[in-house]
Design a protein around this nucleic acid. Structure first.
Lengths: 240, 240
DNA sequence: CGCGTCCTTGAACCGCGTCAAGCCAGGTGG
DNA sequence: CCACCTGGCTTGACGCGGTTCAAGGACGCG
């Protein structure tokens, strides 16, 4: 891990916290926070490591995944700017999941003690953190249902809609703002990478997606929704 | 829904809150809380209904499930005494899931406004609620991984261990304290009820479980763990 | 004791995981 | 700037696990 620890006063530091704190508390937290820059594929924290604090994403995209038998990966969540990684641990708690940067990413680390101090003094911050976890719980429960009930084509269609909602599209040309490998789409849906290839091929024939080279470029949201409509797919987009 | 609303001052009222409040605040909350008794199979709240507050389980067992296409159900969580159902809603939010009593159950309802008031004034309560959701999120993420990676036999073995941990066993004879129907085990694992029957038959032959009549009575934890050991199954039991 | 609901068992089909082979994009070094 | 090389992607064939459909059985309630 070749991270650069800058700790400088940056403009959008810990945006989650910044929008919810008084100036006085923000100052205290600024002193304690550690800002870390990651390159794509860098591990932010690793399954099995000790929980020492919480990470806030300032910039970039992150996948949160757990390893199962035979090192098979399950991506449980995708996260972007403004979202939270990990949780406040107690005692010698360990992470059950890993967080990996999908592109150049800046996170802001705040240790357990500083957080606890803030939580005890800023009720609104704690409430919003609680609501973040509660909202993520509901989203995860809904995806759980999809993963058990959909067939492969539907799962992949749903995953593409999910990716579009999380990553967003570039204003202007409307192309997808970021992309996942076939294997990562497989890890997200719990199917085999070969099957992802096949379905993406089918989807392209049906004008449901567009690729340039290997990269997924355009997602025909309307068409894909047609495939999964009987499940009444939810909106995953984060409310700011 | 033939619920009896009693509202009396009961001994273990809102145990989650009781253990985390000053006497002064407990009194305020006691005045506002509504205690509701449910029979087995009663709906506590229904998918699509408006979120008006949070329920705390005082006594009993509850399944939390979401309906998918063709009304196929996915049980996302089992909850017992001391746990929380639902979340604080904002605006005209609706439940994405239903909660149904599995046996005679007493819950305690606290409305959004009273909760907000309490959260703003009792930091420790908010922190522990946050930790509850964050813990449930991690448990759900782990089960998500299992559901996509395990085969049917493994999923059912895992579900039986899950049930044992949540329901517990009767002290004395060591029999399972509560039970689910074949269909409910199917809804928990995302497999077909017929397959559950078949596997339970196999498990009984291998002395991994014992049935009396239709009811699941004994679960050989050690034997079942053997089946799922390559996943390193986690402990789901709630820390009090 | 009778009926309804849930459970059990069998058989057939097919979706998708598995294995294997070849391809192509994109990065690297000359 | 081109040629090579490597890791990801694509495609095909095959077989099994698990869903589906169907019929019969038994538990438990009234």
């Amino acid at each position: 891990m070749n991270n650069k620890i800058t700790c400088k006063e940056c403009d959008n530091a810990a945006c989650f916290i910044k929008r919810r704190c008084s100036a006085e508390w923000l100052k205290k937290i600024e002193l304690k926070k550690i800002q870390i820059e990651h390159k794509a594929k860098d591990v932010i924290f690793r399954e099995g490591g000790y929980v020492e604090g919480v990470y806030f994403i300032q910039k970039g995209k992150v996948k949160i995944a757990a390893k199962g038998a035979d090192n098979k990966e399950q991506i449980v969540r995708l996260a972007i700017e403004g979202q939270i990684l990990g949780h406040r641990g107690s005692g010698d708690e360990k992470y059950p999941i890993s967080a990996v940067a999908l592109c150049d990413t800046t996170v802001c680390f705040i240790d357990n003690d500083t957080l606890y101090d803030a939580f005890m003094n800023i009720p609104k911050l704690t409430i919003q953190m609680m609501e973040f976890y509660s909202r993520e719980l509901r989203k995860t429960e809904i995806r759980m249902k999809y993963l058990t009930q959909m067939n492969v084509k539907e799962k992949i269609a749903e995953a593409l809609l999910f990716i579009k909602q999380i990553f967003g599209i570039n204003p202007g040309d409307g192309t997808l703002n970021g992309s996942l490998s076939r294997q990562e789409i497989a890890d997200l849906t719990g199917v085999m990478a070969e099957q992802v290839s096949r379905e993406l091929g089918e989807f392209e024939k049906g004008n449901l997606i567009k690729k340039t080279g290997r990269r997924l470029k355009l997602i025909n949201e309307h068409g894909l929704r047609e495939i999964v409509k009987k499940y009444g797919i939810e909106q995953y987009a984060e409310q700011k």
